[in-house]
Simulated assay, not measured.
Amino acid sequence: MNAREELAHDIAAALDESSEEYGGYSDTKSVSWATLDGKWDLRETADHLLKAGYRKPRIITTTEERNALPDMTVVRSSNGVIWERYKDPDGIRDHWAQPTASVTGFPSLPATVLYTPEELS
């Protein structure tokens, strides 16, 4: 399932959940999971959100995944602390640090990837 389909499914699930738990929207006229009241295609809604910059957060759960992240990656650890990876081109220095403190170590897992340099391209 691609990002568009996954997001459309998530929107549909959220609408279904809100109708049951909070008295929210109830879609009684749907022709399929992806169509709301026979008028609005949730896949088009997903396209709009993706174009606006929405990305599902990436969660890393293993040290291998953490070690594979590139220099300047920023993560939020399982205990809520922000960490940034610093890696010298020569490979001599490779560590994680808290940008607002003089603390080095490793982010606790699972961690949410907030930024990777390739997101700029």
Rank of each mutant, 00 (worst) to 15 (best):
M1S: 05
N2K: 10
A3M: 13
R4W: 01
R4Q: 05
E5H: 09
E6W: 03
L7E: 06
L7Q: 12
A12R: 14
A13D: 11
A14C: 09
A14M: 05
E17R: 09
E17F: 05
S18Y: 02
E21S: 11
E21V: 08
Y22R: 08
S30L: 13
S30Q: 08
V31A: 10
R43N: 12
A46T: 12
D47G: 04
D47E: 06
H48R: 12
H48G: 12
L50C: 12
A52R: 11
K56S: 05
P57C: 05
P57L: 04
T62N: 04
N67C: 07
N67M: 07
A68K: 10
L69F: 01
L69V: 05
D71Y: 02
D71E: 09
N79L: 13
N79M: 13
G80H: 03
V81K: 02
W83A: 13
W83R: 03
E84Y: 01
R85I: 02
Y86G: 10
P89T: 09
P89A: 10
D90M: 08
I92P: 00
H95Q: 08
A97Q: 05
Q98M: 11
Q98W: 04
V103C: 02
V103I: 05
T104R: 12
F106D: 09
F106R: 04
F106K: 15
P107H: 06
P107C: 07
S108P: 00
L109E: 02
P110H: 08
T112P: 00
T116K: 13
T116C: 06
P117M: 14
E119S: 07
L120P: 00
L120V: 07
S121R: 03
S121C: 10
S121M: 13
